[in-house]
Every structure is written in C-alpha cells, then in structure tokens.
Nucleic acid binder design. Structure first.
Length: 838
RNA sequence: GCUCGGGUGGCGGAACUGGUAUACGCGCAACACUUAAAAUGUUGUCUAUUUCAUAGAUGCGGGUUCGAUUCCCGCCCCGAGCACCA
C-alpha cells in the first residue's frame, strides 16, 4: 500500500493522470475471485491437470517453475541453477493452443522481434511419427523425425535416458548396471551442463535389445544418450548419421555405420543420360589441397572412373597414383556423393549427355615420394589453399567437387540439404521432399506436428499467490470449489517461508487445509499449491473495462465496447512470458464466450528503457539511479517530460543525460519569454502562418505514431522562428501553447491563464490546421548537373518544367557546369528537383 | 549454428514513396552584453585541400539508377531471441 501510494504521488508530480476509478489490485480477493474463476473454467474444460512429472525446481526459492521462468537454465528470480525434480503440480494445457497462438500472430501489429520470439518459443515442427519393433517384446520405439525420407539411412536408434521405455526394456538389457549409472549421471546434470557439453557426445548401448528396422527388417543397435531430450517429440530418435550432424558425431565416436540415402544434384537432370560414376580424392597437406589441371583452365580433384570389379578404395588408389604420381597415402573419411549432370555442349565434354555419381574421400598424404616412372595418365597437379581451391573449382565444370573441400573446411560431414534418394530400394531417384510422405506411408507411420512449447506448470509452492480452488476428496477425487464460494482467500499465517519439501506453506495450516467435500460432504483437503504471479496479470486488462462488476469478470456489453486493447505498451522481456500467457487465456475466454475477440492486444509497442548515464540499467547495484523527485525539484516536471519525449525514439534504450536536459529547459524558458512579444491584434508573416500550420499537423501526427522526439523538435523549430519576430499574434501563440500542452502541461496552463482564459487548457480541443496554408506559394528547387547539387532556385509553386529549366540555366552556378556541353537528358520532378545530364 | 533488429558528426538523434545527408538538441569555439561571472543573444562547428571553391563521407566491397542513408548481391561488427528441438 505504501508503495502504491508513493508511486501514485510520483505519477501525479509529473502531471500524469489516470482514471483511478478503474484501479485494480491483483492481490485483492475481489479481483482474484475472477482469476480463480477462470482457473475453474479451465479445469472444467479439462485444460488443467495434475501431474507429477519432473519439472524445473529452484532449490533456493523452493518452488517449481515453468519453462518460461528460466533464463539460461537458471531461476529468473534468484539466478540459481534449477534441477529436474518430480513434484506434484497443476499444469495448464497451453499446448492445445499452440497452433492458434502461432497462426494468429500473423495479423498482429506487433514488433517483428516479439512475434519472432513467440514463433521460436512455440517451435512448430512438421514431420513424421514412425516406430521400430523390439524383438521378444511388445514394446515399440516411437520416434519423431522431420526427415522420414532418410529412413533407409537409419543405422541405430537412441532413447533419452529419462524415457520410460528404458525401464520397460530392463529385462532385456544385459548391461543394466551401466545403463542405470548413465541415467543417474544425466539426472544430476543440470540443464546447463547438459547443453554445455554438447560437443562431446556420450551414451550407452542397450546390450541385448534387438531393434528391427521397420522396412528392411535389419537389426540395428539401440542406445541411450543425453543428446536426446525426454520432453521433446517422443523422447527417442532414429539416427541417420549421413544426414544429421549430431547423429554423425555420435556414430563416429561409437563406430557405427553411416549410410547415405540422399545426394545433392548439380546441373539440370537430363533424359537418357549415359552413366559413368567416378571416385575423387581430396588430398590434404596442412591447409592445402591438391588439384589437377584438366586443360582449358579447368581444374578438378584427382580421381576417375572405376575399372571392372573395383571398389571405391581400389579405384581411388589407382587413380591417385596414375594422375598425381604420389604413392604413399591413406584414404580416410568418406565425404559423401553427389550426382552431376553434364550436357553435351559443356566446355569439357566428349559429346554425350552424361550423369556421374561422384564419391569423395578425404586422403592423407604420408610422404611426397612419387613414382619414378610416370604413368601415361599423369596430369599437372598443384597445391592450393582450401578456400581458394573452392573458388577455383566453382568456376569450372567440376564445380560440384568444391563441396567436398567445403565439408572439410566446415568440419561437417553429414549432408542435410535437398537431393534425390539413393540406397532406398524403389524410392531411389525420386526427390527427397516427395519421399517424405511416401516412405512414411510405406513404413506405416503418420505425418505429425510437434511443438517446443511445453505445457504451463501452473502451481507454485509459495504462500503468496492465489490459492488454487480445488479440493481433494477421499471418495470423489479432485472436486472444484463451488463458484459461489469464491474467492477462496489465503488464510492469515505466521510463517510465509517455503517448506522446501515440495509442499506449499499452506499445507501446514490444518484449519484451512481440512474441509468438507462439496459433493459428498465427506472428509476432504484443500489444494495447497498457489498460482504463479503470471495468473492475475494474464487477464487484468479486461478488468479495467469493468473494474467494479461483481457478477462477471467483465460484462459482455462493456467488453464489446472496449475490447480489444488498441495499444499495449510493455517491456520486451514479456515476449515469451506474459504475452504468451495472456494470449492463451484470452483465447480460452473467447472459446467460452467471455470475450468477443480472438486476440487481446491489437498493437504492441516496446518502450525502450532509460538507462543510467553510464549506459547501464539503472539500479542500486551501479548507483546510477536518477530520482525523479530530484529532477522535478531542480528543473521542473515540464522539463523532465519534454526531455524524456525529446531524448530519442520511443522504442529505443537511451542513456540519461542530465547535461542534455538543459536544452529542454532552455526551450521552455524561450516559450515563456515569448509572452512579451504577444500582441492582441497582429498580422503574422506568411512564414509564421505556414510553419504554425505545419507544426500543428506534424505534432498531431507524431503523437499518434509515438514519435514524441520529432514532435518536440518541430516545436523547437517553430519557437526559434517566433523568437526572430518582433511581434506575435495572440492567436498564433495560443494555438502553439495548445499543442505544447500535452508535453509541458504546467507551464502551458499558466500561460493560458495569464493570457486571460478562464477554463483549463486541457479542456480545449486540439487546434485544426488550415490545409491551404501548409505550402508556400514559392518553392525551392534543387538544381543538379549529372546528379550533383549545383544550386537551388526559388520558383512559384507548381511551376512547369520549361519555366524551371530556363530559370535554372540562368543561374550562374549552374551555367558554369552546363556551358559548352550538350544536355542529353533532363529529369524534372515538380516542386523538387531539376537534373541536367550533360 | 538458425532467426529477427540495427550500424549516420565529439554525443542523443533527424531525413516523406529513391530527390539538397547531418534537421532539432547537447557539447565545443569566437564574439556581444557585464567590473566580473552566470544567464541570454549572435556566428561558426562532417573530413581533406589550394578554405568565395572543389572533392570525398551514412559499417566494408560491389551492382541498379540521371540520382542511393533508402533498392539488390556479398561480407564485417553490435544488440536481441532460440539453441543437441531429431
């Protein structure tokens, strides 16, 4: 109460006012009655459920937290690293609204980055659900994948350590001890540790678990690894090392097979090409790579086509020796294949339409010894820096081969792009995008959608918070508190300390906890968890519309009149918290007919924070807080208001600068002194009349578009003009005072009264500007020669091209540049510019 | 790594739809008023040069155009969001 009072005082001190009749307080039982009412509606619609899954637990605050309450895996309030702990809790099914929350973003007039944040947070991902059978078991391993097209490339499956399936498979797991240990180790790792170690993959094979590939029926191994997350998708993945970086890293570490099923294609796909497959070597020496000269300024990687019966290694070894002469090398990583189409008419072609499957290998040169007698196919070879070689190859017919070098440079060996299918039976040759659905169908899976958005952990084990209005009855189970009994108030209590056991402090108040079941009148206990701080703020804007209504949270008639909120201003930190929760509740209230709009806030703006003069967030920590009381005392409330308006764009963070503030004070002093020039009857010059009308227009528009800084700037310009006048008409001055009054209400009221007005200036209407007096009868025209400004001339408004031209050419500064030259072209834009091209 | 913003004087920042870049304010300098200071006013203040002028500057490099802070392509830097999301 003390804080509210103080805050109101400060607000009033700087001349801001609100309709305090509508004031609300989310902690007032009269208000939270309706917060509880909304919860009951959610409960009745099955959107609130009890769960005891592991959730984020802050050991310092001793309470569970929602995902949205974390920052980098730490508690947003105290910065403590959260743990995963199974706690009985109430959860809201915000996920059921994920699609609508995403879809309806499109029509909102919100800052792009806020929409983007919400989009990321919701994290919609389309793919397929597939399953793998486990031999000698009824269990199936379900996986979610966005790449069902790569199903033939699966060489193992991985379960999240926390996946329940691991427990069900226990009888078959021969190395249970090892597996159990790994699960334990994962559990104690905090979320941050788990992601921090992302480079090095770890895991344990589930020995004895025989998994069958759904199509090929091949037996593949199963692993658990913490690179698979329990709470996303199905908590299990099919691993395709050839087409996923993470699977590749894991496969390399545990020596698992890598099977390529999608390859990139180059060139246009031809009908009836001749096939001639080749194998190519990326021979590395330090940061350099060897290219061979194919003649005609064409370079390529060494290598060539297979001879009868040769496998990749044999063909490659032979080709390297033949083309480069090097004899001692080791063939290392397979770099994947590509398919390259060569048309007849290409530079280095022998006259047939040809397709080549090009397989690449990384080759290590052991020493630079060459064969004594050169082979007849030997080519001139040359070492290049790898990134240089990429550029050279890209200019040749062999451009596709640059990809192999790029893979080494990027250190990424899996291919995640588009292409055509290979090694996939009858799906070979088709486009991988097309294969997604076809292979899913063939494997008996289904296309599905997953979200990153987690359901909302809605209960807290704190005292402060709205009690969740539910009753646990021994016979009837969970029963809602009857609506007529709302609000369910918090009991008075001595100790607010959290218990730390995962139970709220309320659980210790037996008088409050023990109650009767509203259904069977038998023994029952109250729910002791409370709601998070977000609950009351998720709908408060609706209560402003009808703050005193005790029959409904808002009457439909009133809601129809006011809603939705036209302009909502808040900090950017609300992007993935309050603004998601409020949208969710609003949509729910829409579904049950309480509100008439799908979205709560039509337009959103993020105000930029005023930072300390050191550029840091104001706070005790840095001792850089600017106290408004002091500022008002020193320079006045109006100066503070003008300065804050003028300092910069509304949405931008700006450092406070007491030094710059004097400009605003000087401006107001000037305005004050202008009173001395005011004369009752005076005809202002055309300049003054024009600028007055322009300024009225601009300030009005700037206020609407939140550009207070340019509004103030234009008023300063006008003031400067008035200052240069001997006399000013009272009418002009008073019109100006009217438009200044929202920025500097105190001084303007004073001037208004001094000049003989009886009523307050705030009651005055916004002045109208005269459309006919916005533009001068003469305009300045910029004269350019070859696009360079050479002079400006003054001509009557709306002068025709001919008149402007002759006037411009008479101008000395222009004539100088045009003299003796031929004018090729003239560009004329009315009232703006004339440009001679010579 | 992906996505979204942004980069303009010594500083805060302005510039409509491609049409005089640097408005307005701060700071700084000189001058006027004053015994002096403050306050106020006047003038100047992007850079270089040969300073009545010319040339070059809106993160860097290209392009389109008579003309680009504005549009297109490639890069660099800063801020924000997400991040082993299968």
């Amino acid at each position: 109460k003390i804080n509210v009072k103080r805050y109101k005082e400060q607000i009033s001190m700087i001349g801001l006012n609100y309709d305090w009749d509508r004031e609300i307080n989310t902690t007032d039982p009269k208000y939270y009655k309706w917060t509880q009412w909304i919860f009951l509606q959610l409960f009745k619609k099955g959107l609130a459920f009890e769960s005891s899954e592991p959730i984020n637990w802050c050991p310092s605050c001793k309470t569970g937290l929602a995902n949205e309450d974390l920052e980098d895996g730490k508690c947003e309030r105290c910065g403590t690293a959260v743990e995963k702990k199974p706690i009985r809790q109430w959860v809201l099914k915000i996920r059921d609204y994920a699609d609508r929350l995403l879809e309806d973003l499109k029509d909102l007039n919100w800052p792009e980055h806020v929409k983007e944040s919400q989009k990321n947070w919701i994290g919609k991902s389309e793919g397929a659900k597939l399953w793998f059978n486990v031999a000698n078991s009824d269990e199936k391993i379900y996986v979610f994948t966005t790449r069902p097209d790569t199903l033939y490339g699966v060489t193992y499956v991985v379960l999240a350590p926390e996946n329940k399936l691991v427990q069900s498979l226990k009888p078959q797991i021969k190395n249970w001890k090892e597996v159990e240990e790994y699960i334990k180790k994962t559990k104690i790792k905090s979320e941050i540790e788990r992601t921090a170690e992302s480079k090095e993959k770890t895991g344990v094979r589930l020995e004895g678990v025989i998994v069958k590939h759904p199509i090929t029926k091949e037996i593949i191994p199963a692993y658990i690894s913490d690179y698979v997350l329990g709470h996303y998708g199905t908590g299990a993945v099919m691993a395709v090392p050839a087409h996923d970086d993470r699977d590749y890293a894991f496969a390399k570490k545990y020596n698992l097979p890598i099977k390529e099923v999608v390859i990139e294609t180059f060139g246009e796909i031809l009908s009836e090409p001749t096939r001639r497959d080749v194998v190519k070597a990326v021979i590395i020496k330090g940061s350099k790579v060897l290219l061979v000269n194919e003649g005609d300024e064409q370079y390529s990687l060494p290598g060539g086509s297979y001879e009868l019966g040769e496998n990749d290694n044999e063909a490659l070894s032979r080709e390297i020796i033949e083309e480069t002469g090097y004899e001692n090398f080791k063939i290392n990583d397979y770099l994947g294949s590509i398919e390259r189409f060569y048309r007849k008419d290409m530079k280095n072609n022998t006259g047939e339409n040809r397709v080549r499957r090009v397989a690449g290998y990384k080759v290590e040169l052991l020493n630079e010894e060459k064969a004594k007698i050169p082979y007849k196919y030997i080519l001139e070879s040359k070492w290049f820096e790898m990134n240089e070689a990429v550029k050279i190859l890209e200019k040749t017919d062999y451009n596709a081969e640059a990809l192999f070098i790029q893979k080494i440079l990027d250190k990424i060996y899996s291919y995640t792009g588009k292409g055509i299918m290979i090694n996939s039976n009858h799906f070979d040759g088709i486009d991988n995008e097309k294969a997604k659905k076809e292979i899913t169908d063939y494997a008996g899976g289904e296309m599905t959608t997953t979200y990153k958005l987690q359901n909302w952990v809605f209960s807290r084990q704190r005292y402060w918070g709205e009690p969740i209005p539910l009753i646990h009855c021994e016979k009837c189970g969970v029963v809602p508190v009857p609506e007529k009994d709302l609000p369910l108030k918090l009991p008075k209590i001595k100790s607010y300390e959290p218990t730390g056991t995962g139970e709220s402090p309320l659980s210790a108040i037996s008088k409050w906890v023990n109650t009767k079941c509203p259904v069977c009148k038998g023994k029952a206990k109250r729910e002791t968890n409370t709601m998070p701080q977000w609950a009351g703020s998720s709908w408060y804007y609706l209560r402003y519309m009808d703050s005193k209504n005790n029959k409904a949270l808002v009457s439909p008639k009133v809601e129809k009149y006011w809603a939705p909120v036209d302009m909502y201003v808040g900090g950017t930190e609300h992007a993935t918290r309050h603004l998601i929760y409020a949208r969710f509740w609003h949509k729910f209230l829409f579904d049950i007919g309480v509100v008439s709009t799908k979205e709560p806030f039509k337009q959103l703006k993020n105000q930029g924070m005023v930072l300390g003069s050191d550029g840091r967030k104001m706070g005790k920590r840095w001792g850089n807080v600017v106290n408004p009381d002091e500022v008002v005392k020193n320079v006045g409330a109006d100066t503070l208001r003008v300065y804050e308006s003028f300092m910069g764009p509304f949405e931008q963070e700006i450092s406070w600068s007491t030094d710059s503030m004097v400009g605003s004070r000087r401006f107001l002093d000037k305005v004050w002194r202008l009173q001395d020039k005011v004369v009752n009857k005076h005809v202002d010059s055309e300049n003054v009349i024009l600028l007055l009308n322009q300024t009225i227009k601009k300030v009005g528009e700037d206020i609407e578009s939140f550009n207070a800084n340019t509004a103030v700037s234009s008023m300063m310009i006008f003031t400067n003009l008035l200052e240069s006048q001997e006399k000013i008409s009272k009418n002009t001055y008073l019109n100006f005072i009217k438009i200044l009054s929202p920025f500097a209400p105190h001084i303007c009221e004073e001037i208004w009264e001094t000049l003989g007005n009886k009523k307050l200036i705030v009651l005055e209407k916004w002045p109208k500007y005269d459309e006919t007096k916005l533009v001068s009868s003469k305009v300045k025209i910029v004269v350019q020669v070859n696009g360079k400004v050479r002079s400006t001339i003054e001509v009557p408004l709306d002068s025709q091209q001919n008149d402007v031209e002759s006037a411009a050419l008479k101008n000395e500064a222009v004539a100088k540049w045009v003299e003796g030259k031929k004018i090729i072209k003239k560009i004329f834009i009315k009232n703006r510019i004339i440009n001679f091209v010579v």
